[in-house]
Structures are given as C-alpha cells and as structure tokens.
Design a protein around this nucleic acid. Sequence first.
DNA 1: CACGATCGTCTACACGTGTAATCGTTTACC
DNA 2: GGTAAACGATTACACGTGTAGACGATCGTG
Lengths: 125, 125
Amino acid sequence: MKNPPSVSDAEALVMAVLWREGAMASEAVVAALAPEQPWQESTIKTLLSRLLKKGAVRARKQGRRYLYSPVLTREQWVSGESEGLLDRLFGGRVAPLVAHFSKHRKLSRRDIEELKRLIQELDDG
Amino acid sequence: MKNPPSVSDAEALVMAVLWREGAMASEAVVAALAPEQPWQESTIKTLLSRLLKKGAVRARKQGRRYLYSPVLTREQWVSGESEGLLDRLFGGRVAPLVAHFSKHRKLSRRDIEELKRLIQELDDG
DNA sequence: CACGATCGTCTACACGTGTAATCGTTTACC
DNA sequence: GGTAAACGATTACACGTGTAGACGATCGTG
C-alpha cells in the first residue's frame, strides 16, 4: 500500500466486518452484515470486489471460493480519515478540535476525566 | 436550513472565501480564489450555483449581478463534519480521538499545553 | 453424467462531484 | 441605437459510489 487506498462509506462497513472477525468468505461477510445493513448479497459482493481492486483487502483462494482479509488496517484507515479532517478544518492541530467540541458542550464528564488522565501521562512521560 | 446542507470539498473552498470576506459578487470570489486554486471562472460559477441550490449560500440581487453570502455558517459546517467523523470512528466520544492522536505522536507540545489549559478551565468551571 | 446450487465477474444505472465550455440576456459605452 | 463586455443559466462529461441484477464457471449430489 503506497498511499493507503481510499475507502468509501459503504466499503468501510464491509471492512469493519473483516476487522472484527478476520479472514472470511464472502458468504460469512454477508451473514455478518445481514443484521445491520439492508443490503442484497450482490451489493456486498460488489463492495468486496472494489475493495480488492483498490488493494484494501486480499483474497486467498480456498477451494472453490475466496477468503477475504483486510490489508488496510483499521488504524491506518482511522489515521487517514482523522488527519484528513484535522488538516481541512483545524490547521492540522488537535487542540483547536477539542476546543471546538468543548465550546459546543460535546465533552462528557467522562471525556474530561479521560482527557485529564491522558494529559497527565503525557506530561509525566 | 432544516438539516444543514452537505457541502463538497470544492464547494467548501468557495464557502471559505465567503466566510472570510462576507457577502461578495462572483467576480470577487473568483479573484479571491485565483491565487489558491487553478480554477476557471466557469468552475467557480458552477460551484456557487450548486451552493445556492443547496441553500448553503444566498444571493441578493445588486444591480445587474448577485451578492452571494453564506447561509450555512462555518461553525455549523465544522460541527457537522467533526461530529460525523467522531460518530463514525470513535463512537461519538472525544477522548478516544485524542487518545488515537496521542498514540500516533500527533500531539505537539503546544497541543498538550493548550489541552492542559482547556481541561483545567473545564474542571474549574 | 446431468442438474441445481454456489461463487465470483460483468454489466447497469442513477446520483453527486470536479471541472469547464457555451448560450442567452442585460448593460454600459461609443 | 448598435455592439462588446459581463453575468448568470444551461449543458457537458468523466469518475466514484450506492445499489443491484444477470451471467458464466464450477462443484457436489443424485
């Protein structure tokens, strides 16, 4: 993966299954998505194909079918998305983002506790 | 604006000009974007039209032309984008997002200082 | 061996988007 | 008043995406 492949919203839902459950056949992906998404089998097959072409997943032949596994990791994906947003909206800096959420009262008490602990650690270490 | 209109990447660059400089004619928008974007005038006109149709900007007639001004505020836009990402990637919570950046060493010393001050205030208030 | 089920692939189509040319109308100037 | 310039509106087109049906190969079973 030179530049990590971009993954669309629908594709990301498929990746999520593979991230949770590891390598699996398309049938299993379909089964895993059935409760959450109202998709036809065909739709999921298409998404898997596109992910394959993009290099976000790999397919190893296992008998008459393929086992799909993620190549792009969830961490890579999260990093790409987050940094993209951070750059576009907050000049690439984290503090202004947190300030924004703070201003709009989107920080829960729990968030604040966790942040305090986090900063504490960073400050010590 | 019932649900704030969605704004594409290119459209957001046009909005940015209106947010910075307030109401202005398309000519001025073109002039403002010229140094930063390699766009033809026509492209910018198209983007303005689309923003108008979406309801993200308003156009008041001023003589023979229009003055475009933002309806969607930058704050609204930033909130929409940020909360979208937060929900999709971090379960809607801020602390995990900061933890992610921390883990990947994306927090500058300055970020850490600012965050410390921020939660200090929150803790006091 | 034939036939139905099961896979993956190919094709399809509408919609948003990035990018732009062209057209038709209005206006200012000569 | 005619003509060029300037505007907004219309049209264009390729590409990614969401969503799915149809097709063709293969495999297991009767």
